[in-house]
Amino acid sequence: MLKLEGVSAGYGDFQALFGASLDVQAGEAVAVIGPNGAGKTTLLRVISGIIPLREGHLSMEGRPLDRVPAHRIIETGIAHVPENRRLFPRLTVEENLKIGAYLPAARSRFAERLDFVYSLFPRMKERRNQLAGTMSGGEQQMCAIGRALMSGPKLLLMDEPSAGLAPVIVQQVFDLVRRIRSEGYTVLIVEQNIQQVLKVVDRAYLLEVGRIKLSGKSADLLASDEIRRAYIGL
């Protein structure tokens, strides 16, 4: 579904990604794991077109994305739940969801998708008129995922959905990711919480200082000495 080949990107003189290649098949859940500063967020930003691709190729369902402007990426079926959630704090929950359905194609199905998101997250329905910035971190994460689902995507990009949340809530967030998967969405998730995320996804890539170091099935990675020693601390 999504294919990256030799993707490089950076900020000004600083290069953050060096020829990263990865692919995500329809129906799969794939994780990109790696320490802080590895370039995980940069990778998702390149896919969404927020920062330009410097080298390599990027395609979604065979369609090249290299020249698609950032605001049109979502039309190809890619929705991005950004790092730190980035809700509009002074808009209500429902208004945040409404922005998620900004695309003309999504507007016409707004009511239907709103019902779907509310059935997935009944808590959001209770809080529909609350300002998004006043909710707890876990609730904000639900709202951010809901907002991304409002566009009716095929592929969901998630940037560290568990970051900054209390341990109990982290558990709930990973349960959410499982629910999203079971709804049939393809997921590409970026995480530092490696042990947890590997239990949710099928495959994972290890990113270190802008390069893909390892990749494989989650179960294999969980068992691999390299990962266990460096990241799980066992």
Binding site: S48, G49, I50, P69, A70, H71, R72, I73, I74, E75, A79, H80, P82, R86, F88, P89, R90, L91, E95, N96, K98, I99, G100, Y102, L103, A106, R147, S151
Partner: peptide
């Protein structure tokens, strides 16, 4: 609603399909 949203966070508007 998008006009109010962009005043709060302009960077992520492209992710919503909004052409700033």
């Amino acid at each position: 609603t998008a006009i109010r949203a962009i005043a709060q966070d302009r960077e992520i508007m492209p992710l919503m399909g909004v052409d700033s």
